[in-house]
Lab assay of single mutants.
Amino acid sequence: GATAVSEWTEYKTADGKTLYYNNRTLESTWEKPQELK
């Protein structure tokens, strides 16, 4: 079967924080998503 690919993209901001963006739900979060833990 196909492996579930994470929908989350990780961005590094200018101040060194990490922003997570979900390509499916168009949601963005500063918290690390469950799927990435």
Rank of each mutant, 00 (worst) to 15 (best):
Q34L: 14
A4Y: 09
S28M: 15
N22Y: 02
N23D: 04
T3H: 12
T29Q: 10
A2D: 12
T25F: 02
S28D: 03
E35K: 04
Y21L: 08
E7W: 07
N23F: 09
G16H: 03
L26N: 15
N23I: 11
K37I: 14
D15Q: 05
N22Q: 01
D15H: 05
W30Q: 06
S6M: 09
V5Y: 15
W30I: 05
L26T: 08
N23E: 08
T29S: 10
T18E: 02
K12D: 03
G16Y: 01
A2K: 10
G1K: 10
N23G: 05
L26I: 02
T25S: 03
A4I: 13
A4N: 14
K32S: 04
S28P: 03
A2E: 12
T13W: 06
D15P: 01
T18S: 07
K17S: 06
T9I: 14
V5L: 13
Q34D: 15
W30Y: 15
G16A: 02
N23Y: 08
T3K: 07
G1I: 14
E7S: 05
T25I: 02
K32H: 04
E7M: 05
E35P: 05
A14S: 11
K32C: 15
L36G: 05
D15F: 05
T13N: 07
L26D: 09
A4L: 13
E31A: 06
W30A: 09
W30C: 11
A4K: 09
S28V: 15
Y11A: 03
D15K: 04
N22L: 02
K12V: 13
T13Q: 10
N22F: 01
L26S: 11
Q34M: 12
P33V: 02
A2N: 12
V5W: 14
K32D: 04
Y11L: 12
E7P: 06
K12Q: 09
T25D: 02
Y20I: 00
Y21W: 10
S28L: 15
A2F: 13
V5G: 12
E35L: 06
T13R: 04
A4G: 13
K12C: 12
A14L: 10
L26A: 12
V5K: 10
K12R: 13
E27W: 02
Y20F: 05
K17W: 05
Y21V: 14
K17R: 15
T25N: 02
T25R: 01
T9G: 04
E10W: 13
E35Q: 08
W30H: 11
G1H: 14
T18H: 03
T29Y: 07
P33G: 02
T3E: 11
W8K: 00
V5P: 12
R24Y: 11
W8L: 00
Q34K: 10
E27P: 00
Y21T: 06
Y21G: 01
T3V: 14
E10I: 15
Y21H: 06
P33E: 01
K32F: 04
E31M: 06
A4W: 12
L26Q: 15
G16F: 00
G1M: 13
L36A: 05
T9M: 11
T18G: 01
E27K: 07
G16R: 01
T18F: 06
K37V: 14
T25E: 02
Y21N: 01
N23M: 09
T9D: 03
E27Y: 04
D15S: 10
T29F: 09
S6E: 09
T18K: 04
V5T: 14
K32G: 02
W8I: 01
K17M: 06
T18D: 02
T13D: 08
W8P: 01
E10M: 10
T25W: 02
L19R: 08
W8A: 00
A14N: 08
N23Q: 10
E7A: 07
K32W: 03
Y11N: 03
V5C: 15
Y20R: 00
Y11M: 10
